[in-house]
Design a protein around this nucleic acid. Structure first.
Lengths: 109, 109
DNA sequence: TTATTATATCGTAATATTGCGATATATAAT
DNA sequence: ATTATATATCGCAATATTACGATATAATAA
């Protein structure tokens, strides 16, 4: 069918997978790293630095924004994008809990 | 085009996005949680517990295996799947570094 | 007003993902 | 050898993602 059956999973599982999906692309990882380093990001910079077309980068920014991971404020002609601290904290918490739940015991295999 | 341009990104960015992509699905999160809790997982259990067909679960297990996140050993008629500690550690390290690189300073926006 | 510049959106093609029924394979039991 | 059980693979349909050229929008500059 090609459609994820979200209704059979918990809200936590769906929320975490949505956040992870937003980050699970090299271009979006690169964009986030760039935003974090600059601490003040303008889309135009990215177009020059990454080897992707302006339309493509704008679309990736839109997806990150939709997931709540970044937020943008209009700064004259350009737009200033930065990390949304709340969502970042949420991601750290959810993901941290998930990753830490595996204690590394080798009972089988 | 629909094809990720991996060649323009760093190995780290590509590797992290591949691992994240493997986890970025509620069914695969549920499967991993189940494996972690049981510490000895057999595919058949999952078919009963999650509301997905056997073929679908087998495919999700295959993807997790392909990404190196889980490993399976044949245990008689069934297969015992468990977490691959090395990959899990790698994921924790890469992701931890990435998430921690954002310090939460509010310089703009 | 008319450029100019920065970003967003539209439309489209190529490819990937999700899910499942049907079927194959492989081990164990009878 | 036959049957039962567990898992994998095939093939397909529906939908999603990725990328980009073309075009629209919106704000400043001339």
């Amino acid at each position: 069918m090609g459609l994820t059956k979200s209704e059979i999973f918990t809200d936590e599982q769906n929320q975490l997978s949505t956040l992870l999906k937003a980050i699970a692309h090299p271009a979006r990882i690169a964009i986030l790293q760039r935003i974090i380093i600059s601490n003040t990001c303008i889309c135009g910079d990215l177009v020059g630095e990454l080897g992707l077309a302006q339309a493509t980068i704008s679309q990736h920014l839109k997806e990150l924004k939709l997931a709540g991971i970044i937020q943008g404020t209009i700064e004259g002609v350009s737009v200033c994008y930065c990390i949304n601290p709340q969502t970042w904290k949420l991601l750290e918490a959810q993901l941290g809990g998930f990753l830490a739940s595996y204690k590394g015991e080798t009972t089988c295999c």
